[in-house]
């Protein structure tokens, strides 16, 4: 593992994913290949020297070289996310360091194991990096994404995920809407609970390795329930995003 240093990235493009979520593509002078699931730290420095720092998961796969996509949700009272959403335009520079973390990562050695991904809201960001990389390397392991969102409008990467599910018979997208479901929706329409998780686990022929990411309370509840349902604790990996909303 290399020593990491702060570097100045240039904002190459900005995409509005949902009303409260933007993806920033950053060109890095010192890009190093990352593992899907890793994050970068981003640091803002005010003129008076005050600094604020946050961690943002990488959405792009390592095959996208020289740059990284960071997908950022606008958090109420979030000093860093508000600045990124309202104060940053293409061409601006941002101070980042990474890639960071070797725990919440999907490694190529796992490509034959069944995979369960569970996301709440913007918790889908590190998981899309895993899915994009999994597609790039042509893995055929049974994979399911259980994705909890408030409404259709707030489902980040929805079009891409639906397309992925159409193209890949081994990948299943399971959405649950916690508020407004689209007209005619016959899928899950509530917060993730024990019944949903039992149902999802039953779709696997053998026990999956799992990654759970999203708001802290969702992550802890899902991890505890999966352990109660018999998944070994060392096959459940978690990353808490704090008070982000679903």
């Amino acid at each position: 593992m290399e020593r990491i240093q702060w570097q100045l990235a240039r904002v190459k493009s900005i995409v509005q994913e949902t009303p409260r979520v933007k993806t920033f593509t950053l060109a890095l002078p010192h890009w190093t290949p990352h593992l899907p699931g890793q994050h970068y730290d981003l640091r803002l420095t005010a003129e008076d020297g005050y600094q604020a720092q946050r961690s943002y998961s990488i959405a792009s796969p390592p095959e996208q070289t020289g740059e990284i996509d960071l997908t950022v949700e606008l958090i109420d009272d979030g000093e860093v996310s508000a600045y990124l959403h309202e104060g940053i335009t293409v061409g601006d520079q941002l101070e980042v360091r990474g890639p960071i973390g070797g725990y919440f990562v999907w490694r190529d050695a796992m490509k034959h194991e069944p995979l369960l991904l569970v996301a709440g809201g913007s918790g889908v960001v590190p998981l899309i990096a895993m899915l994009r990389h999994r597609t790039k390397i042509g893995a055929t392991n049974p994979t399911r994404l259980l994705f909890s969102v408030r409404s259709v409008e707030e489902a980040i990467y929805r079009t891409e995920l639906e397309e992925m599910a159409k193209q890949d018979a081994q990948f299943e997208l399971l959405l649950t809407y916690t508020r407004e479901a689209p007209a005619g929706w016959t899928g899950y329409h509530r917060r993730i609970d024990r019944t949903i998780l039992t149902d999802v686990l039953n779709r696997f022929a053998t026990q999956p390795f799992s990654f759970i990411c999203g708001p802290t309370l969702l992550v802890e509840q899902v991890a505890n329930t999966l352990a109660e349902l018999g998944l070994p604790a060392d096959t459940i990996r978690t990353e808490r995003f704090g008070p982000t909303g679903t």
């Binding site: 994050h39 990474g98 973390g101 070797g102 919440f104 802290t216 704090g242």
Partner: peptide
């Protein structure tokens, strides 16, 4: 407090810079 809490992943950058290796594992 419960909703605000994060995990060891969130401080890995500071510690990796300090110690020169990934602490998450």
């Amino acid at each position: 407090n419960e909703a605000l809490r994060l995990d060891g992943n969130a401080v890995a950058g500071d510690l990796q810079m300090l110690m020169g290796f990934d602490v998450t594992l």
